[in-house]
Structure formats: C-alpha cells, structure tokens
Design a protein around this nucleic acid. Sequence first.
DNA 1: AAAACGGAGTACTTTACCTCA
DNA 2: CTTGAGGTAAAGTACTCCGTT
Length: 241
Amino acid sequence: MMERAEDLRLSLSLSSSLAPRTHHVAMLFHAPAEQRFLEMPLVPSAKRSEVVVAADEDRAGLRGGAGSDEEDGGCGIDGSRKKLRLSKDQSAVLEDSFREHPTLNPRQKAALAQQLGLRPRQVEVWFQNRRARTKLKQTEVDCEFLKRCCETLTEENRRLQKEVQELRALKLVSPHLYMNMSPPTTLTMCPSCVRVSNNSNSTAADRRGVTAGGAAEDGTGVVCHRPIAVRPQQSCVTRAS
DNA sequence: AAAACGGAGTACTTTACCTCA
DNA sequence: CTTGAGGTAAAGTACTCCGTT
C-alpha cells in the first residue's frame, strides 16, 4: 500500500546526521544547511502504479521550463481540479532540498520550480505539506516516547508500593529486626531530600525514612519517601546500580 | 508609539486519486 | 470486473506572526 511506502520515506530516526545528498541540489543553494530536521531516508515508492508513473513521465516531458503562478491552474475544462502527481524524480529532488533546508526563500523556490518544471506555487505547497508531515511524524514519535515513560513510571510506582507494603508488614511482625535492618539499596536519593538525609543525629529509622505509615514527613506536611542509599545528584526515580 | 499592510508560516479542510477487500 | 471504504498527497482557506512603512 502507498501508506507503507510513505511511512518508509518519512520514517524518522533520532540521529542528527544527514544522509549524503545529490550534487545538483547542493549546487543550487548557497545557504548553510539547516539541521534542525531529522533524517528521513529516501526510499523509492515501490508500489506506485504503472499508470501514474506513465502519466508523470508524460507530464514531465510536456512541461519544459518554469511555469508562472498564473498559468495552468490545474483545472479541467469543466473547472474541476486536476490532481497533480509528482514524479519520482521530482519528489526525490524536493526531498533532497527539504533536507537541505525545510523552508525556502523566494530564490530557492524559483530555482527549484525551474529545475523541476513546476510552478513556484506548487513547490511552495509541497514544502508546506512536507513540513506538516514531518511535524505529524515527530508528534507520533514524541507520543510513543511519552507512553513508554508513563509505563516505566507506572511500573516503578507499583514496585515501590509493594516495597512499602513489605516494610509495613515487617515492622508489625518483628519491630526489633526492622529497626536494625540495613536499608534497602534499590533507590537513590531525591535531591530535595538531601537536607534530611544529611542529618548526622538521625536515628536508623530516620535514616531509613520510613515511619509507621511507611513514609516520613519533613515538618512541612509533605510526605517524603526518604533515602535509602544517598546520591544527591540523582533524581528520585534513578535506580542505584 | 500605534496602526496599516504585506509576506510567510501553520492549522485545518477539501478534493482527486490510489489501493485493497 | 465493479464498487465502496479508507488512506494519502496536492491544493485551498483562514488565521497568526512579524517586519516594514
């Protein structure tokens, strides 16, 4: 399906490196390459129908030089809008150019239009739509990333809840053992808790930071699951090695 | 400094065409 | 072979932002 071919063409990687470009495009523009867009490997649209390709080639043959914005509105005799399909070559050149700079100045637009035998307006529209597609893809990638973050935090939360429950049970069963046990080492220190953990006068229970309720209060009313192994520079969710 | 204006960009929509069941 | 649904890309429209006058 066309969708899958498009997906390949638009597939985003988090690499910031740029793929090698063809020379004819690089020579067209003198502005420095903008690298804020992600790499999008070019994969030829394999499933394009023969009919369309033939039509594209016909059109490419017919269109000689650059058209103007006024000429050939792309409408049929009855006023209906005729849909333009860009040829593979045209798309490839536009893609290369897009990787070079996702926005065009008027000179670049005119040069591209002339090179491809398109109207400047068509080049402009292609870039607008291309930016929209890139943004959409990036949004999907971001969404996936946040989903994974959410799953990780949910799992971490589950684990911590379980740990609290186990400690509560242990305290009920054998308080003496509980007070003398060495602290679990699965959590690192939350920076906001350093003040409390550095108190040298604190008791073992204080250092453990777990009250009868399973959590400690720092005097401000804020419940704080206190440190176990202190690492001030790391966040609460960082796992000790 | 504020208003008017134009150019360029984005968001959203429409339309034509393609693929597939 | 035909048809309808769903998807995609090209193009249209409305709006915002920003620099200039």
